[in-house]
Design a binder for these strands. Structure first.
Length: 157
DNA sequence: GCCAACGTTGGC
DNA sequence: GCCAACGTTGGC
């Protein structure tokens, strides 16, 4: 029995890892998350098959660039043990890792980025967390209604 | 590049 | 356990 699938929004700076990078590599470990709320979503609430809106932050324009999906449950994030990584965490123990990552797979790139301005101005998306001021979470849940609306916007021109 | 908003750290 | 100081995020 699988429970109902969930919907997520995950942010990445396209200069670091864009939807095109994901398309080329097909899957990627969502490493380097160092926020407890985002970690808890990955660790506790994400399941294989969940749908992901792929959001480009610090971009021109910032916005939703395509779709991805969860293809692997949370596992320890190897960067926390890598002394050469800027995400190295000396306090994290191998037998009880602090940070985890899910594995994300490419689904599709939208024909255009749905910009944050457009998300904010769409009446159907009122209250969507990513449009709220000060919302910095890199992994956040999305309602089915908001997810479906974003798909509609991606298909329209 | 600026800076508001937020999360984390650490002194007390 | 409070909260000031600091670091980070990310829109603009």
């Amino acid at each position: 029995m699988s429970r109902r699938m969930r919907f997520w929004l995950m942010k990445s700076e396209p200069d670091v890892f864009s939807i095109d990078d994901l398309k080329r590599e097909k899957t990627t470990g969502w490493d380097s998350v160092r926020n407890y709320t985002a970690r808890n979503f990955m660790r506790d609430d994400m399941s294989v098959g969940d749908a992901v809106l792929y959001y480009h932050s610090n971009a021109e324009p910032s916005g939703i660039a395509g779709l991805a999906k969860v293809v692997g449950l949370a596992i320890p994030d190897p960067t926390q043990f890598d002394k050469k990584s800027e995400y190295y965490d000396a306090a994290s123990k191998k037998d009880s890792p602090t940070w985890v990552m899910v594995t994300v797979g490419f689904v599709k790139k939208f024909p255009r980025v749905i910009s944050l301005a457009e998300l904010k101005s769409d009446k159907h998306l009122a209250g969507m967390p990513v449009t709220q001021k000060g919302q910095r979470l890199s992994v956040m849940p999305v309602s089915k209604e908001h997810y479906d609306r974003v798909l509609e916007l991606s298909e329209g021109c």
